[in-house]
Design a protein around this nucleic acid. Structure first.
Lengths: 178, 178
DNA sequence: ATAGCGATATATCAAAATGATATATTAGTT
DNA sequence: AACTAATATATCATTTTGATATATCGCTAT
């Protein structure tokens, strides 16, 4: 019941690769998981506390410097991660405010909607460029198995974003003609 | 600050088309907005209460039958909706547990990942069929302006899901070969 | 007719997550 | 020496979910 907390598995998954501080975990999420997942400090730090009390992660406070708290995964944590990984995905969800505004567009009118679509298109175009750079770099390092999985998630983003851009053209055409 | 509640605008947007009960609002969300938005009873009913106190919606309790509470939008509510519609979209977000499991796939192994991708593919294939039926029906009724916007959101879903299916083939190929 | 069942309908609540804010340190730059 | 951006931890109100409770309505099969 209390084990729906997805942030736990994100943390365990990242720590399974290397020990990290809470801050670094947030950075990893914003950099590598950004296109299909998110997480905030407000969930990360309490989750780290709870995972530590539960024996799923271990913490080590640095003596020198600013006393960063570096977390690493334990065997118990790895078991919990593996258990979750084997379960079927519970929820894949799209939540696009742009589409919500389009759906209610009658109240807004065509020009207003066009503005939303153009902003959406710009944003996607920029993010697509980032993803394409990631893909080029990842294709160079296809030695490690882990890079393969990472590349696949990037490829997912690229295919999806290209489809979005195609749709933007279609939508603009529909809105511009009568 | 307290006006980030997106459920308010979903409710106002739906009521702007026709008066509805809380239950019917939930049904509309699950049927028409499903592919890009969600909402639960736990947010709908309290939001209706608050919107009513705020004068953005009006309620009318049925005398006969089970006494359903039918809500309709007020001028104030329509003004609030329009204000939100004009603002740029704040967040468009994908949250796919399947991709999270793929990203951490090293701990799971190729067969395990393939199972996730196959389940994902099946689910998308089914939902794509539903969307394609919607599109066919909507293309028949292209008289009303509102149907145009609805069709565009459906077209978005179709293009996106087709891209997903293309990616699934790619992913399976990568995972099956060395 | 009536028992049973699925859909309709409203409501509440613990748990999860966000987003904002507070506070302090470190490293690099001007 | 002052300034700035990045690092780092922490907390909290607000929002949302997902589950549960309760009751009624309409249909079907016995």
């Amino acid at each position: 019941m209390a084990n729906k907390k997805k942030i736990n598995y994100v943390i365990l998954g990242l720590l399974n690769h290397e020990p990290l501080t809470g801050y670094e975990i947030k950075k990893r999420i914003d950099l590598s998981l950004k296109f299909f997942w998110s997480g905030s400090f407000g969930s990360i730090y309490p989750a780290l506390d709870a995972l530590e009390k539960d024996g799923c992660v271990e913490k080590e406070e640095e003596n020198s410097g600013r006393g960063r708290i570096i977390y690493s995964i334990t065997d118990k944590g790895r078991a919990l991660l593996r258990e979750w990984l084997m379960k079927p995905a519970e929820k894949d969800e799209l939540r696009y405010e742009t589409l919500l505004k389009l759906f209610f567009g009658g109240e807004l009118g065509r020009e207003g909607i066009l503005v939303h679509i153009q902003k959406f298109e710009e944003k996607i175009r920029k993010e697509l460029q980032v993803l394409e750079k990631y893909a080029v770099n990842l294709e160079k390092v296809q030695d490690e198995e882990e890079h393969k999985y990472y590349l696949l998630t990037v490829r997912f983003g690229i295919e999806t974003y290209r489809a979005y851009l195609g749709w933007c053209e279609e939508a603009k055409a529909v809105l511009k003609q009568g």
